[in-house]
Design a protein around this nucleic acid. Sequence first.
DNA 1: GTATTCTAAATTGTATACAATTCTGTATGC
DNA 2: GCATACAGAATTGTATACAATTTAGAATAC
Lengths: 230, 230
Amino acid sequence: MSKQLSNVDRVYEALRQMAADFAFKPDQRINESELSKLLGASRTPLREALNRLVAEGFLTFQNNRGFFCRSLTPKYILDLYEARVAIECEALRLACRRAKDHEITALGDYLEQIEPDYESGSDPAEQLAMDEAFHLRLAQLSGNDELGRMLRNLNDRIRYIRLIDLKRLRDKTGKRVPGELSAHSRIFLALSGRDPAAAEAAMRGHIEKRREAATEAVQIAFSQLYVPQD
Amino acid sequence: MSKQLSNVDRVYEALRQMAADFAFKPDQRINESELSKLLGASRTPLREALNRLVAEGFLTFQNNRGFFCRSLTPKYILDLYEARVAIECEALRLACRRAKDHEITALGDYLEQIEPDYESGSDPAEQLAMDEAFHLRLAQLSGNDELGRMLRNLNDRIRYIRLIDLKRLRDKTGKRVPGELSAHSRIFLALSGRDPAAAEAAMRGHIEKRREAATEAVQIAFSQLYVPQD
DNA sequence: GTATTCTAAATTGTATACAATTCTGTATGC
DNA sequence: GCATACAGAATTGTATACAATTTAGAATAC
């Protein structure tokens, strides 16, 4: 009847958020004592949480030197985008075979529901959250829990860069994100028609297009991380 | 100049092996004190290692109840096989584009080198290790570290079942594993010819065929895990 | 016999202490 | 100036102690 979440879980969630947002700068060494004070827990649960994040690829670990933030390089981000292609395309193929009609209908309703917010120049972070939610629901229609789990992990590690890319896209095109929604619609229509080849092609193109802008986004990320913003 | 590996690393490797081999039975609760005595370390580093394994999907964790072995169900194993298809097919597509000629040649040499051991009825565990090594090298030709990392994780979680499947296959076909080597050859030839479609088709069929036998292998796994062997 | 409550034992959760190691800055030699 | 050696400070690694919680079993009621 009391708290369901353990302290380690709380610390873990906080650290995951921090790591996703690069609150730790790339390759930065993490001071355990300092961090444990900040999070209001001793080093024991803190280190347990840090170890989880190492296994998930958010941090690295060196014996007797402690924990470090993952580095941020174009190669790393390009790899993550490619891994997304692998996971999402296969999930989509499976979804074409397995998703129930009512599940597809429900996803279509969701797409329509978020359309106004997506169109209007709402908060980029919200917009990205909606995008991730759509992609995740799509992946979940495969019925494969591992693929969903992997996608969630990839999303969390790539989010910081995707957010930069999204903002840039908006600036360049004046509050409108062109082609994005129609890309989602194209994927959805292929799924509705149970056409795996068309669905996969649409998904692949959709992700690939953003991947091509990733290197540039990484450059911007560095300038944001190391230069005072305003 | 002294030990490079930390105690946590040592404990982690041991636990990972145990978890892969289902030295912990599915859903079994793990007693920390007992295990720490067994591994010759205190509960602090033990729990750090256990947390890594939770993040990797080998174990689960319930607040105030501790760590448990992952459960073993046909659905779980089928999901892992599907995830392998996702990772390996995409890696292979990328390899067709990116692998250097000399890398492909080297892989071909490796394939020829292991052929005699693979053909003869050598130790099934060794045979599986060779199979995994081939698939991993293939994936690494993609140049994508994330895909390699994901495949390694999947391999470790699925190995126990694959070993059972492989033994069964040998028993049924009298020391010969038919079609296996030629499947690898077919994949390799398509890669050599830089034909992603053919390569992916061969890979997909190769994995899918074993996936179809997975449910049966899970049944056998249970009988092995809960009945004295000899 | 079954269900319920209670108590003691077992187990997990986490803070802390201290050993081992690395890091930092200063002094020394060339 | 530059490299090296060294000492002290800082940091990580891990055992241990004890609190919090769950579990197991006995006693009781129906």
